[in-house]
Amino acid sequence: MTVACKPGDAAKLPVLGNPVTENGVTREHTIRPFQYLSQDSVNINNDSLSGGVYIADFFFTSCPSICPRVMKQMLRLHDEFKNVEGVRLVSFTLDPKRDTVGKLSVYAENIGVKSNKWLFLTGDKDFTLDLADDFFVAALEDPSAPGGFDHSGKIILVDRKGRVRSFCEGTDPTTIPDFIKDVYTLLDEEKQ
């Protein structure tokens, strides 16, 4: 994180993750194609998000441990970018069995946000656990963990090509200001 945003650095964020070589072709690390349902029961895939950058996290509504802390920082980011076009927030639930569309909709309402800015997505559990890897988020099902899932509270910045460009720790509010700077840096880059 701090690597990504030392003041005075060239105004470009690094592309995070190791490039992959497939059939002799090397490409940058990107988020794999996905398909989810939003809190409004709308189909959301990578293309739906490619109109701008997005800020992602993984959570579940009944999570008694770090989730509310991370959500608080997501909310802070939401408020920062509420009126900035081309930035959205995306929260993937790790617990689709309990987190139905209806439940996510109540959750979003209680946090007080609108779906055109902040999407809460539910889909296939195992796929989501794998997808988290692409975001460099450690997530696994663990009956002994509070709420049944163990996961890190990272918040991740993805550009419109689906590349990871920055991240911060949702459990540590002091990492947020640098992350906000990174989002603006990326927005500038995408304008060029």
Binding site: P64, P68, R69, K72, L75, Y107, E109, N110, I111, G112
Partner: peptide, 16 residues
């Protein structure tokens, strides 16, 4: 408590 109610007691909108 702080995971939910936050270290500064500010909670999380209507959720907490």
């Amino acid at each position: 408590c702080a995971n939910c109610h936050m270290e500064d007691g500010s909670g999380l909108n209507k959720l907490i």
